[in-house]
Amino acid sequence: MILALLKRRLWLWQNQFIPLLILFLIFPIAVFSLFDLSMRNIIIQSLGKIPYDQWAFPGIITIIGSMIIFPPIYRDYYHLRVHGKVLKTVALAPFSKRVMVHSFLSVAVLEAMIVTIGTSILFVNLISTGFTFGKMFGLYFFLILFYGLIGNIFITMALWIESATIYLLATFLTYCFIIFGSGLLFELDYFPVSLEFMLSLLPLSLLSKAMHLALFSNSIEWILIVPIIIIIALWTIGNGMLLRKKLIQ
């Protein structure tokens, strides 16, 4: 099923190649200009004395990827579903709903990873990240986990919510948490203690913490990483059940 979905994504890219290419070139440059160029003059250093440019680099890449993963999921699980197109007919193929969710998610993650890798290569030339090849691969490993988690959040929302207004507001709220409340661009220590505690318990924050520890302290915290992998796996199964319920199949 993954191969069929990949071919379809390629065709969709091919059918709208020029506008998509322009957007995907403008997108990372816009994020870099609007986030990094301003924030580096405000924060300058992380609390661990790492230059903000370097510290924020994985976060900016993650945020770009989280925005890339949204359209394919929105398209298939929300827009085309509520308009009675594609998804129900795809569900007639001989695959379980769990495999279906897993395949859609994998293809969306792969698409986000391809754009992310391109973006990270572009950024390495714009920012002095000081990242070695090893660290870049480490970053990509964490990005896969981030996208798996964020993709599952978007799939749940897309299947659960019927109203476009509620869906869009819920999406904006999710992005507020991703950008401001997960420790990707701003350390959670800046928040009041009680709020910091609550935010630090979110899976995205745990993963952000594990990523920063691995990339800047060379400390791989499996105690943070393994539960996230389990959450992603269980969430995918849960989304498969939700899809089955939604399609009444």
Binding site: R8, W11, L12, N15, Q16, L80, G84, K85, V86, K88, T89, L92
Partner: peptide, 13 residues
């Protein structure tokens, strides 16, 4: 299966 309503992906040929 051919459903009653058109359900093709509008952005694919």
């Amino acid at each position: 299966y051919v459903p009653h309503e058109n359900d093709l992906d509008p952005w694919l040929t």
